[in-house]
Lab assay of single mutants.
Amino acid sequence: RDEDEKEKIKEALKRGNEDKAKEIAKRANVSPEEYERLRKEAE
């Protein structure tokens, strides 16, 4: 379940949809550090 959320965040970031990614991260309680890591992976 947690991994699904992280995949959704990465997908949103790949599409350049940072607002959606942040919204998912907030809902999934993803830490800022984890969010940054996902953002780097998505580049």
Rank of each mutant, 00 (worst) to 15 (best):
L38F: 04
E36F: 04
A21Q: 00
A12G: 01
P32H: 10
K10M: 06
I9N: 02
K14W: 05
K10W: 04
P32K: 10
E18I: 15
E43L: 15
E41P: 02
K10N: 02
V30H: 01
R15S: 14
E7K: 14
D2H: 13
P32I: 10
G16F: 03
K6E: 07
N29Y: 05
I24G: 02
K10C: 08
S31P: 10
E23T: 07
A21T: 00
L13G: 00
E7I: 13
E43I: 14
R39P: 00
K26F: 08
L13C: 03
S31T: 13
R15D: 11
I24N: 02
E43Q: 13
S31H: 05
A28L: 15
K22F: 07
D19H: 11
E41T: 05
L13E: 00
E23M: 07
K10P: 00
E36W: 04
N29R: 09
D4S: 13
E11P: 02
Y35N: 00
A21K: 00
S31D: 09
D2I: 14
K40F: 11
N29F: 07
K22P: 01
E3I: 10
V30S: 01
N17R: 10
G16K: 04
A42N: 05
R39A: 08
E7F: 13
E33V: 07
A42I: 12
K22V: 08
A28R: 05
K40D: 09
R27N: 11
N17G: 03
R1D: 14
K14S: 08
K40H: 13
D2K: 11
A12F: 11
K22Q: 11
R27Q: 11
E36N: 06
A42P: 02
E18K: 07
P32F: 10
R37Q: 09
E41R: 06
L38I: 10
G16L: 03
G16D: 03
A21L: 01
G16E: 03
I24L: 11
S31N: 08
E41G: 04
D19G: 10
G16M: 03
A25H: 01
S31L: 07
E34I: 04
N17T: 04
R1W: 13
R37E: 08
A42K: 02
A28M: 09
G16C: 04
L38R: 01
D4E: 12
E7G: 09
K20M: 15
A21H: 00
E3G: 12
K6H: 13
R39T: 05
D2T: 13
I24C: 04
K8T: 07
R15W: 11
E18C: 09
N29W: 03
E33F: 05
S31A: 08
A21M: 01
Y35E: 00
D19V: 13
K6N: 09
N17A: 10
E33P: 04
D4W: 13
P32A: 13
K6R: 15
R15I: 11
N29D: 08
K8M: 14
E43H: 11
R27M: 09
V30I: 15
E43P: 03
E36H: 04
E3F: 12
R1Q: 14
A28F: 12
E3D: 14
E41C: 05
A12I: 03
A28W: 07
L38T: 01
E3N: 13
G16N: 05
E33A: 10
E36T: 04
A42F: 07
A12W: 13
A42G: 04
E23K: 07
E3C: 09
E34T: 03
K26W: 05
A42D: 02
K26S: 10
A25T: 02
E41S: 06
K8E: 10
K8R: 13
R27K: 12
E36I: 05
L13M: 08
E34K: 00
E3V: 10
E43A: 12
K22N: 06
R37H: 06
E36P: 00
E7S: 12
K6G: 08
A25K: 02
N17F: 13
V30Q: 02
L38K: 00
R39W: 05
A21C: 03
E5L: 15
P32T: 09
Y35L: 07
E3L: 12
Y35I: 03
R1G: 14
P32Q: 11
D19T: 13
K40V: 13
K8Q: 14
R37S: 07
K26N: 09
R1A: 15
E33M: 08
Y35D: 00
E11Y: 04
A21Y: 00
G16S: 03
R15C: 07
E33G: 07
K20P: 02
E43W: 15
E7T: 13
I9S: 01
D4Y: 12
D4F: 10
D19Y: 09
E36G: 03
E18L: 11
E43M: 15
A21G: 03
E41Y: 04
A28S: 09
E23I: 08
K10G: 01
R15Q: 15
D19I: 12
A42E: 03
R39Y: 05
Y35V: 04
N29L: 07
K26G: 07
K8F: 06
V30C: 04
E3Q: 13
K8D: 07
R27H: 09
I9K: 00
E43K: 09
N29T: 04
E11T: 07
K26V: 10
R27G: 08
P32W: 12
E11H: 08
E18Q: 09
K22G: 04
E18P: 08
E18M: 10
V30P: 00
I24A: 03
K10R: 08
G16I: 01
S31I: 03
V30D: 00
K6Y: 15
E23V: 06
E33S: 08
R37V: 07
E5D: 13
R27S: 10
K14Y: 05
K6F: 15
E36L: 07
E43V: 11
K14A: 09
N17V: 03
K14H: 07
A25Y: 01
E11S: 09
K20H: 11
A21W: 01
E34H: 02
D2W: 14
R37W: 06
R1I: 14
K6A: 09
R37D: 05
A28K: 05
V30Y: 05
